[in-house]
Computed example of a mutant assay.
Amino acid sequence: MTENQKTPYVTVTLEAGPAGGGGSIDDFELFYARRAVDRFRTLLGRQGLLDLLAAEIEEGNAFLRQCARTSDGAFKGGTTVLEAKGLASGEFLAWMDKAFTGDEKPLLAAHPEHYVMGTDEIGARVVENIGPHIASFYMGGWGTDTLDWAKDAAELLPEAEFPRKMSSNLFLADGTVVGRALIQFGDTADGFTSDLTVYFPVTCPDEVLDHHLRHYAVEFRNWIVAAAAAQD
């Protein structure tokens, strides 16, 4: 079924059958989907995935490069806000720092459209979907005190409430800046708030931005859950 097709009006409920595990049919499907994705990632390996996706990555990078060219330095942004309970922002960010310099498996597991994540000589490399396109890009220049656009961003929140801030350019291997990220964290009485902003060139279709806001929700939720599990 494509995104443009309407879902038939029908409801199906689980009344009896599976023993143990709990959850809904959607929960069962998610478990099996994650297991299948992990199997293929493991069998193919990092280089195997890159080889398999090489043509699509070339097309995706060309799309983003063209959007950057026609936007002439102008960006549009959107924000996803998540509330977490049971974990402090410092604990989460410490887990993230360790994950990006170690085994990429927990980073990949957070989203089915994560293909490669890790740090090389250029920076923190990410191969993932940007909207319907697969792209290979880098993140770098973290810190709101090092990037002029971050200092003046309309989405910048008060330091007193969101003291943990990180910003980055998203750039291709040739240096073309194809996006920006501004992520801000503020602790609450029982957890923390994540304010996750992403920017893309203004000529990118709106669906690219919308899908990445959904992407943020999925990956950060799963990273937060993984970070909490690692505290035990």
Results as ranks from 00 to 15, higher is better:
residue 82 L to Y: 04
residue 164 R to F: 13
residue 47 Q to F: 05
residue 75 F to V: 03
residue 143 G to W: 05
residue 161 E to W: 03
residue 112 P to I: 09
residue 85 K to W: 00
residue 149 W to Q: 09
residue 169 N to E: 15
residue 44 L to R: 11
residue 2 T to N: 12
residue 33 A to L: 13
residue 177 V to L: 00
residue 166 M to W: 02
residue 194 S to L: 10
residue 67 C to I: 02
residue 86 G to M: 05
residue 222 N to Y: 02
residue 226 A to M: 08
residue 177 V to P: 00
residue 17 G to E: 04
residue 55 A to T: 12
residue 22 G to W: 01
residue 72 D to W: 00
residue 111 H to D: 13
residue 170 L to P: 00
residue 196 L to M: 09
residue 165 K to E: 03
residue 59 E to F: 08
residue 141 G to K: 05
residue 215 H to L: 09
residue 199 Y to A: 03
residue 65 R to W: 02
residue 62 A to C: 08
residue 89 S to F: 02
residue 42 T to G: 07
residue 200 F to W: 05
residue 84 A to E: 01
residue 168 S to V: 06
residue 21 G to Y: 02
residue 170 L to Q: 11
residue 159 E to T: 13
residue 138 Y to T: 08
residue 39 R to D: 13
residue 206 D to W: 04
residue 119 T to S: 13
residue 210 D to E: 12
residue 181 A to I: 13
residue 137 F to E: 04
residue 215 H to N: 07
residue 150 A to G: 08
residue 144 T to G: 06
residue 215 H to V: 02
residue 98 K to F: 06
residue 178 V to T: 13
residue 196 L to A: 06
residue 186 G to M: 06
residue 118 G to H: 06
residue 7 T to V: 15
residue 161 E to S: 11
residue 178 V to Q: 02
residue 189 A to V: 14
residue 23 G to R: 05
residue 35 R to S: 10
residue 131 G to F: 03
residue 53 L to V: 04
residue 53 L to N: 08
residue 72 D to S: 12
residue 54 A to P: 07
residue 9 Y to I: 15
residue 27 D to V: 03
residue 130 I to S: 11
residue 200 F to R: 01
residue 46 R to L: 09
residue 181 A to Y: 01
residue 107 L to M: 12
residue 2 T to I: 05
residue 172 L to S: 01
residue 51 D to K: 14
residue 183 I to D: 09
residue 19 A to T: 10
residue 164 R to A: 10
residue 157 L to M: 12
residue 88 A to C: 05
residue 175 G to D: 06
residue 135 A to Y: 01
residue 134 I to R: 12
residue 24 S to K: 04
residue 83 E to L: 14
residue 71 S to F: 05
residue 113 E to L: 10
residue 220 F to C: 03
residue 128 E to T: 11
residue 129 N to D: 10
residue 99 A to Y: 00
residue 232 D to S: 15
residue 192 F to R: 03
residue 41 R to V: 08
residue 18 P to C: 02
residue 39 R to T: 13
residue 122 I to C: 04
residue 219 E to M: 07
residue 96 M to A: 15
residue 112 P to S: 10
residue 174 D to M: 05
residue 68 A to I: 08
residue 93 L to A: 01
residue 111 H to K: 08
residue 69 R to K: 12
residue 186 G to E: 03
residue 118 G to A: 07
residue 173 A to P: 01
residue 219 E to F: 04
residue 64 L to G: 03
residue 142 W to H: 15
residue 70 T to Y: 06
residue 199 Y to D: 02
residue 225 V to D: 15
residue 7 T to C: 15
residue 138 Y to I: 08
residue 38 D to Q: 14
residue 36 A to N: 12
residue 181 A to N: 09
residue 12 V to C: 08
residue 210 D to K: 15
residue 3 E to L: 11
residue 99 A to N: 03
residue 102 G to E: 11
residue 63 F to D: 05
residue 48 G to F: 13
residue 231 Q to F: 03
residue 143 G to L: 07
residue 25 I to K: 01
residue 131 G to S: 04
residue 68 A to N: 05
residue 206 D to N: 10
residue 21 G to M: 05
residue 82 L to M: 14
residue 80 T to Q: 14
residue 113 E to P: 03
residue 16 A to C: 02
residue 159 E to Q: 11
residue 193 T to V: 11
residue 41 R to N: 14
residue 44 L to C: 09
